[in-house]
């Protein structure tokens, strides 16, 4: 966006601005497509000419064919479902745990003393370093994978929601008291909606972390899932399958980010900024 605006020659921007802006935006979008397409063409050409062997890097067309085959045979849908269930259940646990812990810590000094210090320590720990310990504790089934996702994704939920609860305008809480709201009503009507923007920020980080945790968990020790499919392909020098896996991860990341953005637009419609961008 920015570079396009700043590259406008100011004198020409004066004439028929609306039409010009629309056309310029289209041209800009097309122009941004040029270099990725060029890279794909060069890549394909390099593969055809034999410059790059399939064992090093499969060609774009080969990847496409492999993706179709894997989908038809059911291998990709099966592994994708396994991965989605792992990430989804881990994220669900992370949200539930993070919200409960942040509420306890955010609403009482005693809760903060009890919960915030350990959470801050946990935050500094790279969650991926826990993989060996989790395998020892939980074995090689679903538990260590889901636990890893849950733990990693819980931290940003907790941190952001806790900050959001503490940043609630005390004047609004006071107003709630004069209206005779109960403790439960205060939390449901004032505290949680007030901290929702921060919760959603945390959720966005959490979703990203969930995929990261999943990738590692599935590549270290798994018999199914996208990560396992990729590790399996490594043994047979199938770079096409590995690249299909990468593509799937990228799409999952993109898609889940869009879902969170949509949530933000819908749930935070009351914010002037959200209305403008919606």
């Amino acid at each position: 966006m920015l570079d396009r605006v700043s590259s406008l020659p100011p004198a020409r921007a004066r004439a028929a601005p609306a039409v010009r802006d629309a056309r310029r935006a289209r041209v800009g979008a097309l122009r941004r497509m040029v270099s990725p397409l060029l890279i794909l063409v060069l890549w394909q050409a390099a593969s055809w000419s034999g410059l790059v062997s399939p064992q090093t890097l499969a060609s774009p067309l080969a990847i496409l064919a492999t993706a179709t085959d894997l989908t038809r045979s059911g291998v990709l849908p099966h592994n994708l479902l396994v991965s989605l269930v792992r990430a989804g259940s881990g994220l669900a646990i992370a949200i539930a745990g993070g919200v409960v812990l942040a509420l306890i810590a955010g609403l009482s000094r005693l809760g903060e003393d009890a919960i915030d210090a350990p959470m801050q320590m946990l935050r500094t720990l790279p969650a991926l370093a826990l993989v060996p310990l989790f395998i020892l504790w939980f074995g090689i089934g679903e538990t260590p994978k889901v636990a890893l996702v849950a733990l990693g994704a819980m931290i940003p939920i907790y941190l952001n929601l806790f900050k959001g609860i503490r940043a609630i305008d005390p004047k609004l809480l006071e107003m709630g008291r004069t209206l005779g709201l109960s403790q439960g009503q205060m939390i449901r009507q004032i505290v949680l909606p007030g901290a929702l923007p921060d919760l959603l920020t945390g959720l966005r980080f959490s979703v990203g972390i969930s995929w990261l945790m999943l990738v590692v968990a599935e590549q270290v020790n798994a018999s199914s899932g996208i990560g396992h499919m990729m590790m399996d392909a490594q043994d047979f020098l199938r770079t096409d399958i590995i690249l299909v896996g990468l593509l799937v991860y990228a799409l999952l990341g993109l898609l889940s980010d869009q879902v969170v953005r949509w949530l933000e637009r819908t749930l935070l419609a009351w914010r002037p900024a959200a209305r403008v961008s919606a």
Partner: peptide
């Protein structure tokens, strides 16, 4: 029954006008 109107209206920005009045 006591009610207070503050200097700043202290409305909940995430509730529509009607729901602010209905609060509680």
């Amino acid at each position: 029954q006591v009610a207070v109107v503050f200097q700043e209206a202290r409305l909940l920005p995430w509730k529509r006008v009607r729901d602010n009045v209905m609060l509680g």
